[in-house]
């Protein structure tokens, strides 16, 4: 896929950081507001796909190799499973929320009822949100990038 006109490139360059910040906000506030790792990752991957469509696949694959993306996705999956296995070790069962109630990271317990949102709550859930977010960003963007690059090289051969 070749690059588009200068107007499209400028507008997508301006709106790309806003989309990325919105997606990262959804991921990092996943335990307070609606959303989570999967939804925020889908938003960030949509922004990256917009950059891919605007700038063309050859420029994008020069900036971000697909090998690095699959490495990032594997890191997210390993972090997710490792957090679950830590629950098996520190608590009693698989997927145990071992950080809640402790003085370590994300350990505060909110009082019951509707309270003011405190980001230092949630136990292991924000860490799992980050792991799943990295995994979904890398996975969905890798699919679009690899498909666009393969179709563009086939187009050039014709």
């Amino acid at each position: 896929m070749s690059e588009m006109s200068k107007i499209v490139r400028t507008i997508s360059s301006i709106s790309f950081p806003l989309i990325i910040i919105y997606g990262l906000y959804i991921i990092s506030h996943g335990h307070l507001t609606p959303g989570g790792g999967f939804q925020g990752g889908a938003v960030v991957a949509s922004g990256c796909a917009m950059i891919l469509v605007a700038y063309g696949s050859i420029w994008t694959i020069g900036k971000m190799k697909e090998k690095n993306l699959s490495l990032l996705e594997s890191i997210g999956a390993i972090c997710f499973i490792l957090l679950a296995i830590f629950g098996l070790g520190f608590g009693a069962v698989f997927f145990n929320n071992f950080l809640v109630g402790s003085d370590f990271l994300f350990g505060t317990i909110p009082s019951a009822g509707s309270t003011i949102a405190n980001i230092n709550t949630g136990g292991v859930i924000p860490l799992m949100n980050f792991a799943v977010g990295i995994k979904v960003i890398a996975g969905l963007f890798a699919i679009v990038l690899v498909m666009a690059h393969a179709s563009s090289t086939r187009e050039g051969k014709k």
Partner: peptide, 19 residues
């Protein structure tokens, strides 16, 4: 709604148009 707007309206369209 967020998941549907991100995946259904953006990524699926990009993949379909590339194909």
């Amino acid at each position: 709604a967020i998941a549907e707007a991100g995946i259904g309206a953006c990524l699926t369209t990009a993949i379909l148009i590339i194909a």
